[in-house]
Amino acid sequence: MAGSVMLDIGGDMGALIITTGPEWHGREIEISRKGELPEIRTHVAVRARHVAGGVRYTAVYPSLAAGAYVIWRNETDPAGTVVVAGATVTEIEWWPQP
C-alpha cells in the first residue's frame, strides 16, 4: 500500500518515527503515554517507505502530545520508552524480534 503521511506538529504536538526491520512490515507497533493507563494505546502499522538509497520500514505517528511514551513489544511486555518533543519529529531505530 503506497501513501504519504502528513505530520501535524507544532506547539506541544510532535511526531514519532520508529524505523525497524522488514520482518515488521504490515505489523502494528503500539505505544502509550508513560504514567497513564497502559491499556490506552495508539498503534500504527509498519510500512515500506521508498527513500533515496532504498527502502526504510517505519511506523509513523503523525501527531502526539509531547511527553514520554512506552513502546510495547507485545500485548503485555514493554520494550522501552521514547520522549517526543513538541514541534519536532523524533526518530528512533527499534530492532526487536516480532
Rank of each mutant, 00 (worst) to 15 (best):
I92K: 07
V83A: 05
G26D: 10
G11L: 02
I18L: 05
A66P: 00
E39R: 11
E28Y: 15
D77W: 03
V83L: 04
A48R: 03
V55A: 06
Y61G: 10
Y57W: 15
A65W: 04
E36D: 15
E23T: 11
I17Y: 07
V84L: 01
V83M: 03
T58N: 13
H43D: 10
D12E: 02
R41W: 11
T88G: 00
G11I: 00
G53H: 08
S32R: 05
E91W: 07
A79S: 14
P38T: 04
E93I: 12
E75C: 14
A65L: 14
P98L: 05
R73T: 12
G35Q: 04
G67F: 01
L37P: 06
E36S: 15
A66L: 00
I31M: 09
R41F: 07
T19N: 11
V55F: 06
T88Y: 00
E36T: 14
L16K: 10
R73S: 15
Y57Q: 03
D77K: 10
E93F: 15
G53E: 06
H43C: 08
A66S: 05
A87I: 12
L64W: 08
M13N: 04
K34F: 14
E23C: 08
P98W: 02
T90N: 02
E28C: 14
D8F: 09
I17V: 15
I71A: 02
T81A: 09
A66H: 00
R73D: 09
K34W: 12
V83T: 12
L64V: 13
Y69I: 12
V51R: 15
Y69M: 12
E36I: 06
G80W: 01
P78M: 03
P98I: 02
D77S: 12
P96R: 01
W24Y: 14
V60D: 11
Y61T: 06
I9D: 01
K34V: 10
L16Q: 05
V84G: 01
G80E: 03
G3C: 03
G10L: 01
T81S: 09
W72F: 07
I17S: 13
P62G: 03
V70I: 15
T81I: 10
W95C: 09
R47M: 11
E23G: 06
S63F: 04
G86Y: 04
G26A: 11
V60F: 13
Y57H: 13
E75Y: 14
D77E: 12
G86I: 12
V44N: 07
I9M: 01
G21D: 04
P38D: 05
I9K: 01
G11R: 00
R47H: 10
W95N: 13
W24S: 10
E30T: 06
G11Q: 00
R73P: 13
E75K: 14
M1P: 14
A65K: 11
G86M: 04
L16R: 10
T58L: 12
M1Y: 11
A68S: 14
A2F: 01
W72L: 05
W95M: 11
W95T: 15
R27P: 09
P96D: 01
G11D: 00
I92L: 13
G67R: 02
K34R: 10
A68N: 08
I9F: 02
G35H: 03
R27H: 14
M13H: 03
R73V: 14
W95H: 15
Y57T: 02
M6E: 03
M6D: 01
L7G: 01
R27E: 08
